[in-house]
Amino acid sequence: MATAISLSHLGSVMRGVRSVDQVGVEERAAGLAKRSIKKASKLWALDLAIRCIDLTTLEGADTPGKVTALCAKGVRPQPGDPSIPSVGAICVYPSLVATAVAHLRGSGVKVASVATAFPSGQSFTSIKVAETREALAAGADELDMVIDRGAFLSGDYQKVYDEIGSVKEACGSAHLKVILETGELGTYDNVRRASILAMAAGADFIKTSTGKITPAATLPVSLVMMECIRDFSRETGKQIGFKPAGGIRTSKQAIAYLVVLYETLGPDWMTPERFRLGASSLLNDILMQIEKERSGAYQSADYFSVD
């Protein structure tokens, strides 16, 4: 695959990417979603889910105050219960990176910033690269970029590839997550093409969605992306991470993603280094589920802090 991309005819390479059968992939995902995860394995999965969360706020109305509160929640999701781990990262807009960095120092929780004219990606490459540099200068550990779907859908794969490459270069050692915005790609075939393109261009993670359009992450889309990661790993030896984002609100969903992850990519990916869940409201549902498992009683939202 890596050699294929170096061909000058990127378009024909992309159009030759193996297809995906919609019905088959959706049935497989639905089958995996029926796995019944109980007791110790459920508690373990919920713990891992928390550690993998990119706790996210991406609103026009975001303020330092909001981000400060989110950081506190991310570091100590359940005050008074040290057995509940911190989340993987706090994900914010570039202008709020500094605030997040200030509140997360020493906590082990990473700061992730979206960039590259998020969420549409409809701007100039130079501006996207500049935005990336600014976000990293402000202290971001990880960068979530969007691909240029306009270019992708018009068949200008070269532009998408080059742009990811430029941003990757600007990232240096910072982790680059490439958002495909699968909800705009229309087919699983395109998801597969975009996944391969992004990985070949230098993505450390591939990510489903911005969370700004529907559908965001779905289980079958995630399965397709994970299969691409698996193929890529087999062919290049590189282990690319995966991040579903958007619409993941319940523990049940989170566990379903972990099951698909486990049965597609295996235990090596069951770590925040290679798996993240982009979510804003998932955390409390997980906390309630953990408490339910421990206490045996179903829980009320009134007992869990909202930030």
């Binding site: 019944s36 999965a45 090596d268």
Partner: peptide, 11 residues
């Protein structure tokens, strides 16, 4: 250590 724990409990 954690990775090996994701053996599905009996259901």
């Amino acid at each position: 250590m954690g990775q090996r724990l994701f053996e599905y409990a009996a259901a």
